[in-house]
Design a binder for these strands. Structure first.
Lengths: 126, 126
DNA sequence: TTCGGTTACTTGCAAATAACAAGTCACCAC
DNA sequence: GTGGTGACTTGTTATTTGCAAGTAACCGAA
């Protein structure tokens, strides 16, 4: 069950263009990836905590997104206990650098989408 | 060929949560929508011009995204000539308000994705 | 006046991706 | 040894994408 298309056999798929918008969307242009990043910013660290968000991300999608984010060097996965095996996910510097973009998206949503609100206590800022 | 799922029969699909990140991703959380917005920022106005970007957006996807952006009040479609019918697409204030988010995404891409570059002359800033 | 070209799309269909439910595996507590 | 939790994987169905082609309304030249 490989994620590959019929085109290339190795590596990830080719960038559509060198444009930074396009390249960024190649990585996080979908409905779920940024939500995972958001939750990591909010301090969630385990698979279970990440599953628990109000948007109800499916388990296979979460596993896939964590894998991709890890492959892109935006997230690290470290075991914090051997037995039973338990893992902690955290943003790398590259992942944390998305703060400005996330902040801009939050601001746009709050300003232009009626009915949006930050759940109490949720804030990306430290 | 409705975009609807089996769930609700009218209106657009329900927001996954009131979170501004999630609500924003409900609108532009895919690989193409922000590229269309980018091109509109760059001054492209016609369907043909928008089709012409290096990422090669499929025609049906472009038509769909313009429809959605228009439905969300982020883009206007105006005929600028009757015969033959020709249309001009432009960002509304709501669409233009994405400038900060787009800028943040560009900055992140340029800083963290090696090989990205702005094609000469391309810049979101006025 | 018919032929070709342009703009702005729509349609059909195979392929990829997502969603949902369920199952697996490794423990630990009782 | 039975039940529960955390971290996933697998199977199946539903939805979305990508590509090729088709349509419609003109305009301009031959």
């Amino acid at each position: 069950m490989k994620k590959q298309s019929l085109s290339k056999e190795k590596g990830r798929q080719a960038a559509r263009s060198p444009c930074p918008v396009s390249r960024t969307l190649d990585i996080l242009g979908d409905k779920w990836t940024l939500l995972v990043v958001r939750d990591l910013f909010l301090g969630k660290q385990t698979y279970g905590e990440l599953l628990d968000s109000p948007e109800r991300i499916p388990t296979n999608i979460l596993a896939d997104r964590l894998k991709r984010l890890t492959a892109h060097g935006m997230v690290t996965k470290q075991p914090y206990q051997q037995r039973p095996p338990r893992y902690r996910y955290q943003l790398t510097e590259k992942g944390q650098a998305l703060a400005a973009a996330l902040r801009a998206i939050i601001d746009w949503g709050l300003a232009w989408l009626p009915g949006t609100r930050l759940p109490p206590g949720q804030d990306v800022e430290k």
